[in-house]
Amino acid sequence: MVRDLDHALKHVSLRAPAPRFERPRPPRGVFTSQQGFMRALGVGAVLLVAVLPFMDASRYTMSIATSALIYVMLCMGLNVVVGYAGLLDLGYIAFFAVGAYISGIFTTVLGWPMWAALIATIVACVTAGIIIGAPTLRLRSDYLAIVTLGFGEIIRITANNLKITGGPSGIHGIPTWSFGPWSFDDGFNLFGIDFPERVVFYYFVAAVVIVVGVIGAGRLAKGRLGRAWKAVRDDEDAAEAMGINTYIAKISAYIIGAVWAGMAGQLMATHLSAISPNSFQFLYSALILMAVVLGGMGSTPGVIIGALFVSLAPELLRDFAEWRYLIFGVLLVVVMLFRPSGLWPATAVLPWLRRTRPTPPAFTEATAVPASVMESVDGTPTTDAHEGDRA
């Protein structure tokens, strides 16, 4: 019997059995699905960023908002290194300094336009990521943190002692972005509305942050490389046993994070028009890492919230004068006590979705063995099992 069945199966085309349950379609509403709510929240945030200059276009507001967006860009890059790949980097400000100094040198000394200096910035950040990451990424945990901290200080001290970087005085007079005869200093007029230089640059930074920082990081996290990073973060030995080249995965995350930091450094150099070694101390690396941990490592909305909190809280507390940093520190301690996983962790589920009970799927009939197979085995025509039941 078994031999006859095996012989029959070799010459009969089998069809895959139908599923026992109808898989329900995932909800797509704003308040019925996590993805729908996040998309609506993202659209609302983009609209808020777009209308902010129409509500308050003062120089102070635009300056603070632009700096906050640059912080978001910087934290998104560190989130790739720490949140996705699990590499504790305490010298991330070094790549921020590389981007700022390269753009400053190429625009002030060599006379390049800022868009051309962007190419040099990316090349320099990739080179710096390989030089720093190649020997250090074979280390883990605390050893990696100590070595990256040392490299961050090396970059700052080197910039403080080189003549081309301006030494302790830094570089001044960094020009803004220009495209042919037009530059951001000229502004523009649209439908009778004047957009000054600070508003134009704010919109430019917002577009770069949204497209490169938020959308780019989100796509990377969901791709094959992002899954490899998360596997390395969870258990490097298990990831290597499963065939992932952990060294390539780590150095790719390090280089991508370096490029993000370099672009943010170039934006900051253009925004401030002057840089100095004191702008790249270890304190800023700690603040950026604090923003990532505070918001939620590996979470895009969490990192954005953490970056905005770290960059805007001291400004909102400016009325308290010398007490503002004390209040800022107390707020950080309180948040970490009550939200140890971050303000918006990567595994967060909306509160109203936790209370919803999944509906049981509808039962469907399973597909029986094809009648042609049974007929070829015993020589008698048979009917489908479900047809017999219905009869």
Rank of each mutant, 00 (worst) to 15 (best):
R15Y: 08
E197A: 15
A134Q: 05
G306K: 02
G77C: 09
M290D: 07
L350F: 11
A100L: 08
L52E: 07
H7I: 15
A117L: 01
I122A: 07
F280M: 07
D56E: 09
I248A: 11
F191V: 14
H271N: 14
I102E: 03
P358C: 02
A362F: 01
G99C: 12
I304R: 05
G388N: 13
R339D: 01
F95D: 01
G388Q: 12
A258K: 02
Y247H: 13
E365H: 11
V334W: 02
R3I: 14
K163G: 11
I248S: 08
D194Q: 12
P314A: 03
R318D: 07
M290Q: 05
L118Y: 02
A321D: 15
F282H: 08
T382N: 09
I171A: 01
A124K: 06
A100K: 14
P345I: 04
V2C: 01
L87M: 15
Q266A: 10
F195G: 09
E322K: 11
A120D: 06
G388H: 11
G133M: 03
G187R: 05
G36K: 09
Y254M: 09
A145T: 15
M1P: 14
R25I: 08
R59C: 01
L332C: 10
L350A: 13
D319S: 10
E365Q: 15
F151N: 08
G42Y: 04
A249E: 05
T364G: 06
A128C: 10
L312S: 04
D234P: 14
E387R: 12
R20C: 08
G36H: 07
V30Y: 00
D319I: 11
F21Q: 14
P26L: 02
A264G: 10
D142P: 13
G342K: 00
S252G: 11
I251F: 00
A65K: 13
E153G: 05
V335C: 07
T356F: 00
R25C: 01
P135V: 14
V46S: 03
T108H: 07
R138M: 02
A286H: 02
V109E: 03
G298L: 06
R20Q: 10
I305F: 00
E153L: 12
I122E: 01
L294F: 04
R233Q: 09
G44I: 14
L332T: 08
M73R: 05
M38N: 12
S178C: 08
S285Y: 04
V72A: 05
F191C: 06
W323E: 09
V147F: 00
A221P: 10
E375L: 11
S33Q: 08
G243I: 10
N79V: 13
